[in-house]
Amino acid sequence: MDQFTFIFDILLPALMQGLVITLQLIVCSAPFGLVLGIGVAAGRQYGGPILSRICKMFVLLIKGTPLLLLLFILYFGLPSIGITLTAFTAAVIGFILCNGAYNSEYIRGALLSIKDGQMIAAQALGMTRAQAIRNVILPQALRRAIPGLSNEFIYLIKYSSLAYMITVVELSGAGKNVATKYFIYTETFMVVGIVYLVLVTITTVAVSILEKHVSVPGTSRSTSAAQM
């Protein structure tokens, strides 16, 4: 069997199946990770003392422990207290928690960068704090958080490979299975690497299009984007 037969007839079909799972993991995790990140950041910044402490503890907990450990607990640990999750669900929950915790820090940084005057002006018009946060603060903060959030999204693409450790045969896992079956490691993992690289490149391009699309005319951010 020559290399081309191996790559095109065996490896790529197997990787395609893995890629579909990887994409499913990402699509199921990323939106909820974003929502969780917004909630935790807003809770920490604008919540009362109790809520903000809970949010802070959550972030510390997730940041302070390896994601792999979290996945093991969700998949292998929870059945002992009567909660049994499919491997896919356990992976998605783990990714949402991890993605959300890190996202919240980028969003919190962006919230801190919004000047007090925005909140004051909104309240002076009769908006509640919640209305001001939703309509005035967050739309500005999320724009500023895009570079950080896209970074975290790219991490998600790559740490989705950890799902393999709890038996989800995603892209890396599919590669690993082919490699061990045919004893062809170098080529297999190089091709897997290229697929990740393509995913990350597509993301990067999409983010820069998004950033340009939502940039506010007249600000330095839109000017520097236009020069690129």
Binding site: G117, Q118, A121, A122, V136, Q140, R143, V216, T219
Partner: peptide, 8 residues
């Protein structure tokens, strides 16, 4: 004094 228009 500083208008505080909503920048976005």
């Amino acid at each position: 004094q500083n208008y505080y228009l909503f920048d976005h």
